[in-house]
Design a protein around this nucleic acid. Sequence first.
DNA 1: CGACAAAACTAACGATTGTTAGTTAAAACT
DNA 2: AGTTTTAACTAACAATCGTTAGTTTTGTCG
Lengths: 204, 204
Amino acid sequence: MYDGLSGWVLFFIFVLMKSTRKEEIVAVASGLFKEKGYSAVSMRDIAQAMNMKAASLYNHISGKQEILSTLIVRVAIEFTNAMETVMAEESSPINKIEKIIEFHIDITVTYAENIAALNNDWMHLEGTDLKRVVKMREDYEENFRSIIKQGINEGRLRPNHPEVILFSILSTLRTLYLWNEKRGKMDVNILKKDMVSVLLKGIV
Amino acid sequence: MYDGLSGWVLFFIFVLMKSTRKEEIVAVASGLFKEKGYSAVSMRDIAQAMNMKAASLYNHISGKQEILSTLIVRVAIEFTNAMETVMAEESSPINKIEKIIEFHIDITVTYAENIAALNNDWMHLEGTDLKRVVKMREDYEENFRSIIKQGINEGRLRPNHPEVILFSILSTLRTLYLWNEKRGKMDVNILKKDMVSVLLKGIV
DNA sequence: CGACAAAACTAACGATTGTTAGTTAAAACT
DNA sequence: AGTTTTAACTAACAATCGTTAGTTTTGTCG
């Protein structure tokens, strides 16, 4: 019995180690991708940042494409799940939009590099991954659009063109990662309140 | 006299032709850069889109870098000039912000591909061009920031964190190029009014 | 028509790309 | 202790990169 348990523990450690090494590569690569873009970063660049040779990377990953795919699909799922949670709630459109703003900020704080790749390098995905991510993006936007339209129909949102509202908010949220660094000491909850205020009530 | 005039006319045609061919290359390249990014587009890609061989491009341009530089510096100057015009005006902060929104839309309509390069590929500029564009960007943001701060100090803008206001508006304006295609039949003036409304008065 | 220049071409360069094969040192398991 | 596995390495591959040199085609002027 002890032997059996030991086996499981070691198996988990094994999985964890292997997983950790791959995660290191993904993490290091994501930083480089954010700075220069996927195409401008070579496997040798990634290897150098990991203090190894390019060929050694292939002991842990199948190729450059897998790094990008891992990076992007991961955060795309994060957004999709968060949006589905909000959609399932029984609350007003305005309340839902507030929730969207808030989870965008939360996800940005922990997935800044992933978001950079999602925003700027999604077109370099291939095959199924590309289709999947594009589909998730379209569904996401369609959900957001439906919330806005409902808000307008209920008279709770000012009757501007839904597309203008959608992309005004979404553009701001999607590029939040760019100046999150400068956020510095600004507390996340204060940022949430400020952004909800600015995006919903405007600035005048 | 007729000969002299003829000479000038032909000179202009000559300049125009040479310039036009270079401009064609820059225009075609900008479209490719917008779709895949500077680093993912090869000189052979550009040549193919122009129905020529890569080597022939060098009869008109000095290299790939010049294309990027031409593209980015051109629109950066456009924004800088527009901002300086607004700064020189004697009008309220709110009025200035409206003007900024409007010229962003105007410039986006005619320089969509240039803006894509400015947003996504500025870091691939080299030497003087890189420094120059970064400087212009910093100055631009500083001007915008001062307008916002003044508006808050005068009590005309709600006292949110200036940085949040600045980047909320600027993110929307900078990524406008992404969905300008979808704008379709929407009139530019209607778009201006909608965006001013959404960005200044919010959506509730 | 002949002269000349503009703008295309072919061919090739050295460098870099992502990736594979085969090897070796260290670590882990039996 | 002996065996196997992990994860690094060196070396090299075919392909592609931006760019240059030299040549040929095209078109325009006198």
